[in-house]
Write a protein that binds this DNA or RNA. Structure first.
Lengths: 350, 350
DNA sequence: ATGAAAGCGCTAACAA
DNA sequence: TTGTTAGCGCTTTCAT
């Protein structure tokens, strides 16, 4: 432990001939202070090098800030489950320093669910919000209200065009597609690639993988201009049909041995891959879902590109906490996160 | 903000008919309390579910915990510089919650320097210590003293056989060598590999890359049993001679196009690589030093294996902080960190 | 062995 | 606009 020759508000009160109350007022910009006094206090703070004592402050306030997290409801072993677990992890560590967190989860296919969840969130009157946005317009409604109430918020995963958020944390989608091209081909030109895609039945649903696909296409154009890219659609709601679909397709294209999916569901085609082994096949997918990781470690999937959703959430919550407790702005507003390349040889400790 | 219905020592004092002072005594095992009282207090704590308020405690104590970090002195753009920057980053964020950090840096080639630095560290009387150990025996001397004083410590990077630390954070060295084999060969058998090594002039200096080399060898044995592995030694203190050494060697082995180094100095051979371009060459090294990253992005180096030294340090400091402030033990004692695969396509946001 | 009381530095309600 | 004051929950000293 270390001795403490701290400068306190008392010191700066004496120095300025004002009272602790006034000092506190300028410290927190609460208004009701004359220009002169304010300046004197500011000067004294500078000169004396005053630093607030967090413990005393938190103790005196006897309330904890609440951070609300708005994310899609998650099925087991989905991308959002990983994110949710990240929330709980950071909740624990910042809970220690006196901040509460609360999940608000909505059905990502249901606009109404999003709306009512937003309302609940606002009712909780949080000190800060982490948002994983899915519905452009409705999100704007939310952020406008947050602005009005002067509640800071950060986006994770994706970000609407509108601004005003404290920060954004997410993967560079286009680049992740580009990287994906390199991993799939191993840097060598290839003749054929199969892209397995999810049939989206609800229209109006924005496809978050569009940019990723674009990045992939550009990579292929530049490095394998003659490559034939084929698409096959599968339906995650009918897992039994997937094997049939793939078998039928491969009957006509037996020479194709490069397979890629741009969402987190590469595990859906693992059963087919396992029953049709091919040592020279390369398969690349995204995200470290349990099922994906298992396939990776068994050698069924060649590589995964992942982004530590828990890390993303942690950074988001941390940025928010620092702002709420200490009014500290994050170093950067847009934070593009590193893309992790996972293979069977480095998956173990991820 | 959220209301706070905390149980305080006052509550448990009333409940037991004793005073706050006595409650505090049993809370901290300070003695001078009768068996009976102690039992009553313990019971009340259980029943009421009392949890101490860290802020109040820290405030009343008027001292801040100090975390000391013991690492090798760093030249610019070295591995330990990255680690040091990690310290400063986490220092900032935990500084916010009221913990100080202090660097203690020693000459990693000088045992005496290590000893005197340890002494200084102990003089500072820290509440916790992060240690990057280089000298087995002397480290043991330090940890014994820390034990005596009941000061918790965690190891980073590598760990002595001895135990008693709160936690360890580091890269799995053997596995990193194995992974390195896969990246260098691209999973295909190869005929020749050149291993570039550093001439170590000071003997007695343990080589931290031994395990890594072992992992690499095993990979090659299993996947490229006929591969010829050659070694060339270079001296970082005589950078001018490196190009000559390599040129001479490659004169005799023009067919070799797989090159690897097991330490963080792959940048040393970049000048030679650049002046002797070969599009089919594969070069793999370790650690995200600036010079290495530049070579990666320019396509001179194929892959780097990195470990976010700053992250390692952050986790170490975090674990220590949680223990010091809240007596919370880390979830795992041995924490093997993920090995990041860096290529020119994902290096940008690392 | 136990209690009483004075603070730690800050906040917030109230008074002036 | 400013000052005063009563805590926040805990530690510590001094009595008893």
């Amino acid at each position: 432990m270390v001795q403490n020759g701290q400068i306190t508000i008392h010191d700066i009160a004496r120095r300025t001939g004002l009272s602790k109350g006034t000092v506190d007022r300028v410290l927190h910009d609460r208004g009701g202070v004359s220009r002169k006094s304010k300046e004197k206090v500011m000067a004294a703070i500078q000169e004396l090098g005053y630093e607030p004592n967090v413990y005393a402050s938190l103790l005196a306030k006897k309330e904890k800030p609440l951070i609300a997290v708005l994310i899609p409801k998650h099925e087991p072993d989905s991308f959002w489950e990983l994110a949710a677990s990240g929330i709980d992890k950071s909740a624990e560590s910042i809970g220690a320093i006196g901040v509460d967190t609360l999940h608000f989860e909505y059905d990502q296919y249901d606009l109404d669910s999003f709306r009512t969840t937003c309302a609940k969130l606002l009712d909780a009157n949080p000190s800060g919000v982490v948002i994983a946005p899915m519905f452009q317009e409705a999100t704007e409604g939310l952020t406008q209200e947050l602005h009005k109430r002067d509640i800071p918020y950060v986006f994770i995963d994706s970000k609407p065009e509108t601004d005003g958020c404290l920060a954004y944390f997410g993967m560079p989608l286009y680049k992740s597609g580009y990287l994906c091209g390199d991993l799939l081909t191993g840097g060598q030109p290839v003749q054929n690639v199969l892209i397995v895609r999810i049939r989206r039945d609800r229209y109006q649903q924005s496809d978050p993988t569009i940019n990723r696909r674009a990045g992939f296409m550009d990579y292929m154009l530049e490095h394998s201009p003659d490559c034939v890219l084929s698409n096959v659609f599968i339906d995650p709601n009918e897992p039994d049909k997937i094997e049939g679909t793939l078998s039928a397709w491969f009957e006509d294209h037996p020479q194709v041995r490069h397979i890629v999916m741009f969402n987190s569901r590469i595990h859906l085609i693992v059963p087919w891959l396992e029953s049709h082994p091919d040592p020279k096949r390369r398969v690349v997918g995204f995200d470290n879902l349990k099922a994906n990781m298992e396939a990776l470690q068994r050698g069924i999937v060649t590589s995964l590109i992942a982004q530590r959703p828990d890390e993303q959430v942690r950074l988001a919550i941390e940025a928010l906490t620092e702002f709420i407790l200490f009014r500290k702005l994050p170093a950067r507003k847009d934070n593009y996160m590193h893309m992790d390349i996972l293979t069977r040889y480095n998956a173990e400790y991820y």
